[in-house]
Design a protein around this nucleic acid. Structure first.
Lengths: 245, 245
DNA sequence: GCAAGCCAATTGTCCGACAATTAAAACATA
DNA sequence: TATGTTTTAATTGTCGGACAATTGGCTTGC
């Protein structure tokens, strides 16, 4: 087999790229078995260790799975939604935390995307989604809930809203924006007063979705964005002041 | 160092997870140097090969970079937008191609997300974005353009629209939806008539963005979605008929 | 002071060996 | 023959050692 890739990269990276391209191009289909490590060593003319390092790279990207024993080997793996979600969320979270994205930018993106889902969610929501949204709203009104649990419940509610749109592609893309904001949201201290405000907006949002009133849902999401931004700015201002001491 | 992870997984996977968690938790900051492979072998009590396989997994996820020579080693890597984009697009494309997502679903998600950007793009667009959109629209009206180039130009135009919103988080999330649709779009044969129609809508869209008329942009995107869906359905119907012969 | 060369640390690659796992083949038994 | 057991072969997982390649710092000579 040939490897006409960047010659300055490591051999294991070149080999991984070669196989990755074959999978992405569709030259190898799902569940197809790759040659054994020994055969790959021969084909690429490298040691088994190097082949193994290449295969581990592919495994890290969920492109292959390996199985031991006779008739074992490496197989092209079907990328499931669940795994893709997980990878997407991890990457998004790291991207935000490592690149100092402002609270405003993340917040704006999140709510813009949610508003994009809202009309579809209104149209297609079923009782399950509404029940989840109501249950999470109720949980958020419980006194004694930790800030972290409040945030987690918030994410669950918004996830229900997104899922109500019944579009897996949309859910997948949204997951990154919503979940990646959680670390930022966790920095906020939610007072009783602010929780009350948020719960109120969540109620209005759920009502709108139930009534299939897209305009009202859009309005509620705008209100939520404005209020979240307000809370976030207070926190950032306090942090800035503290660091300036 | 401890590894209290799933004991049924490979050692290299456990070690990779252990280090990955440390990076994600923020225990290791960007550009911090990991212990050398030899030290990691000692700490985790495994062979150097196993450590190397773990490190290759992390490198495949762009979490670390390695450097040879004295004062070399593995360093926590800052995840750049460019790399995250690339990973995101690859994953999104594979997710669509491996899971038989319908053209309708992908199309709906794409345009819903683009409509989410439109108001911000109208507000913040600058001459560069408008120029790109106009240039790509013009290119699309050139006779003799291949279907593939037409698609690529289409993506470029929509990318300019998204970038005009000046929100990198939004651009990042959108990239997955827009670019992942390209393989599906490439299956479409664009007739002179359909190109004319699309170019017309693109012109209206660009006009709307220039005039900062969000409602008009939204309308154009709705029209584009409806027309794309129409074209896609024809192709899918033809394919279904052909496979039924 | 400076340049050249040497040195040590570190990753990259290779090799050979053995353990663990697993499916299939061979075999034994009722 | 049917069935359960054992053996075998293929394959990945792990280990240890060896050497090459790279690279920054140190030493030495001038």
């Amino acid at each position: 087999m040939k490897i006409d890739t960047d010659p300055k990269a490591d051999l294991s990276a070149q080999i991984a790229k070669s196989i990755r391209d074959a999978i992405i191009n569709g030259d190898m289909i799902v569940d197809e078995r790759l040659p054994s490590e020994a055969e790959l060593s021969d084909q690429f003319d490298v040691s088994r260790s190097t082949v193994r390092e290449a295969l581990k790279r592919l495994a890290a990207q969920s492109l292959i799975r390996t199985q031991r024993g006779a008739s074992g080997g490496a197989f092209v793996r079907r990328l499931s939604y669940e795994e893709a979600y997980g990878q997407h969320i991890t990457t998004s979270t790291l991207l935000l935390s490592m690149n100092a994205v402002s609270f405003e930018t993340a917040c704006e993106a999140r709510y813009a995307l949610e508003r994009a889902c809202a009309p579809m969610a209104c149209e297609r929501r079923n009782p399950d989604h509404l029940a989840t949204m109501r249950a999470e709203t109720h949980r958020q009104s419980q006194p004694g809930l930790s800030d972290e649990s409040f945030c987690a419940s918030d994410v669950a509610l918004h996830r229900a809203l997104v899922d109500a749109a019944h579009n897996p592609v949309l859910s997948y893309q949204l997951a990154g924006a919503v979940e990646a904001m959680q670390p930022l949201m966790n920095m906020i201290t939610f007072t009783a007063r602010s929780r009350e405000e948020i719960v109120g907006i969540h109620s209005r949002l759920t009502d709108a979705v139930e009534a299939q009133d897209a305009a009202k849902a859009d309005h509620a999401l705008h209100a939520l964005e404005a209020y979240t931004l307000h809370l976030g700015r207070d926190v950032m201002a306090a942090r800035a002041q503290k660091s300036g001491d």
